[in-house]
Amino acid sequence: MFLKLNEIGDKIAIAASGGKDSTVLAHIMKLLNERYLNRKIFFHWLLQRYDYGLDLFLLSIDEGISGYRDDSLETVKRNQLEYQLPLKILSYKDLYDWSMDDIVKEIGRKNNCTFCGVFRRQALDRGAVMLGVDQIVTGHNADDIAETVLMNILRGDIARLQRCTFIKTKSEETIPRSKPFKYTYEKEIVMYAYFKKLDYFSTECIYSPNAYRGHARVFLKDLEAIRPSTILDIIHSGEAFETSAESNPTNVTVPGVCNRCGYMSSRDLCKACLLLEGLNRGLPKLGIGNTEKLRKKHLDEKEKSIGEYSSSKRTPGNPFIQNFNDLKLGSDLKKPL
């Protein structure tokens, strides 16, 4: 599994939230990488094929949730010291001029997870570009994947339903992401963290109890109580669904880039830019629900201003985020002590 997901000598960013999954992931990645790297030194001729030689980084996103993320980031920082891995922290505030606390004040407790999820996904990709990594690994476990399959059916997201079970993303447009714990039950990860006495942060996000995902989570746990193999069964179901490209090779949509920020988007304006525009205009629900008309309308209005936009002119309060193509290897890496 480890070798299938990673190429020898890859630069890998571990998405670290400080929670159990990412902590165990960082621990295992570090452990396996060093175990086989050290063996190579002593048994070079015998174990050459096991030489992972991965260059590992920790990548954290600070959503700006006081009382939750600030504490979990402290855990990440402690793990950084223990594992001696470089750490990069990107905050929503720096990237988008909005923290999640600010967003929740605007939008309320409902739908705030939409903002957080969209912004985090892009923030991770931005961080990965800044670190110059070849791949991002995330700590999604089997329970998360099963939950996502159910969620995608419940909310009618057929495109995501068909690709959410991929262990590694197939798009060539963005930095590949993989989920090494795809078939690992959440309880196994917790047990591993417990027995290895790993330092992790176990508090639930203070804004998540109102999320739609919570319904799917409760349902999944009830299902598991009836049939313990349900989680893998759901993943099996999810894997059976084919993407439109697989079922009909002629019906392949070529992903483009956002006209504004340069991030991968199948439309002219990416979801993050649309949500951000809504926030900046005082219309936070602008990007929620069916946004096709809004995207077009908004693009027409802002066409001129986009042309004038340059990343070098970015100032605090500017509603535009830095263009993806202008991102460079960051020099502010926090080096291990």
Partner: peptide, 14 residues
Amino acid sequence: QSIAMASKGRGYSF
């Protein structure tokens, strides 16, 4: 039925 069958691993025959 579809959610129940997906939970039982029968997504293939949808």
